[in-house]
């Protein structure tokens, strides 16, 4: 008993996380089977999980590595096509075939992560962002012009394998892997590169390796998310994975807070549900996103607004005396 208690204290966060994770899973499943969520609500659960995977993985690149990737939809599409082509052409039992498809989609996307990560080793900032954008567009053009991907007409005949349980487990795995990575020495190395690449190198950090690892990991989970997406809609069209899709994922990351995984999860849930709830506002969706991006950036960086924010914070939360002068 004593041992168990000390275990609980030592691993407080992982324990809370596991309990919460299982509770959410049970509640959602209960809500689905009792029909409380309705068809529309239940239909949103898988997209929520997919968006969580996309946002959390992109956050690794944008929030922790500090580089802008504008081609996340490209990784997603590569994974989606690889995984869906696999389930179309192979005929194994579902419980083997689908997890395998998720892994294959992830791995193929990860290979593309290496291909994009390689130029990333030499470039940074605006140049890298534009290269990721270019890669995304190249991938889309190529998928569009190939025959075995179904071309512009899309890839049809995909089984609807995606259900809430699989999607939930995949999203949980994404979160666990990325959170653990970030809280390891490897994650600190990645964050150090974001904060100051020159002193990271001077501290003996292998910048090349960690940039690559970030891109590969992010691509893997985006690819797996793509496989879920394909098996949810039962059709893939190259047009879905355009630049706008990448931006939509970026919006989630920015709204949730760069470098804040919990924020990404909450923002992914809100951004997936909101358009369904506010159907009347669908014309204004992109406008609202764009204003949100600008306001978030200005409020986090503009000196005047930062001052205002700290004033408001100070009023809401009077000094706890925690800070040492």
């Amino acid at each position: 008993m004593e041992k168990f208690k000390s275990f609980l204290i030592r691993k407080k966060k992982p324990v809370i996380f596991s309990v919460l994770g299982i509770a959410v899973f049970i509640i959602c499943n209960a809500l689905i089977s009792s029909g409380t969520l309705g068809r529309q609500g239940a239909g949103l659960l898988v997209p929520i999980c997919i968006n969580i995977m996309l946002a959390v993985s992109l956050n690794l690149i944008v929030g922790f590595l500090g580089e802008l990737s504008l081609g996340h939809a490209g990784f997603m599409s590569v994974g989606a096509y690889a995984g869906c082509l696999f389930t179309i052409h192979f005929d194994l039992p579902v419980y083997i075939e689908f997890p395998l498809a998720l892994i294959i989609g992830g791995l193929v996307a990860a290979i593309f992560g290496v291909i994009i990560g390689l130029p990333a080793l030499r470039l940074n900032g605006d140049y890298l962002a534009i290269v990721t954008l270019a890669f995304g567009e190249i991938i889309r053009s190529i998928i569009n012009s190939l025959e075995f991907t179904g071309g512009a007409g899309g890839l049809k005949g995909i089984n609807k394998f995606s259900n809430f349980s699989v999607a939930y487990i995949a999203a949980m795995l994404t979160i666990i892997v990325i959170v653990n990575l970030v809280h390891s020495r490897h994650g600190r190395a990645i964050t150090a590169i974001r904060d100051n690449i020159i002193s990271a190198e001077a501290m003996g950090i292998n910048v090349v390796f960690y940039k690559l690892i970030s891109f590969v990991m992010a691509a893997f989970f985006a690819g797996a998310a793509g496989v879920l997406y394909g098996h949810h809609l039962a059709i893939l069209k190259p047009g879905t994975f355009d630049f706008n899709k990448s931006i939509e994922i970026l919006v989630i990351v920015v709204l949730g807070g760069m470098g804040n995984i919990t924020g990404s999860i909450i923002a992914a849930i809100i951004i997936t549900i909101l358009p369904e709830v506010l159907r009347d506002l669908s014309d204004y969706r992109m406008l609202i996103y764009s204003i949100a991006l600008i306001v978030m950036m200005l409020s986090s960086s503009s000196p005047k607004l930062a001052e205002l924010r700290s004033k408001i914070k100070g009023r809401l939360r009077p000094s706890t005396g925690k800070e040492v002068a």
């Binding site: 390891s184 150090a192 003996g204």
Partner: peptide
């Protein structure tokens, strides 16, 4: 040139980085 958005102790831990040997796998699966 500090890692200004990291905590003080994490700055030092980045310095210690190369003196630990656990792999990415060890880190991800604790």
């Amino acid at each position: 040139r500090l890692f200004s958005n990291m905590s003080v102790i994490d700055n030092v831990k980045v310095g210690l980085h190369n003196h630990q040997t656990y792999s990415v796998f060890d880190g991800v699966f604790r």
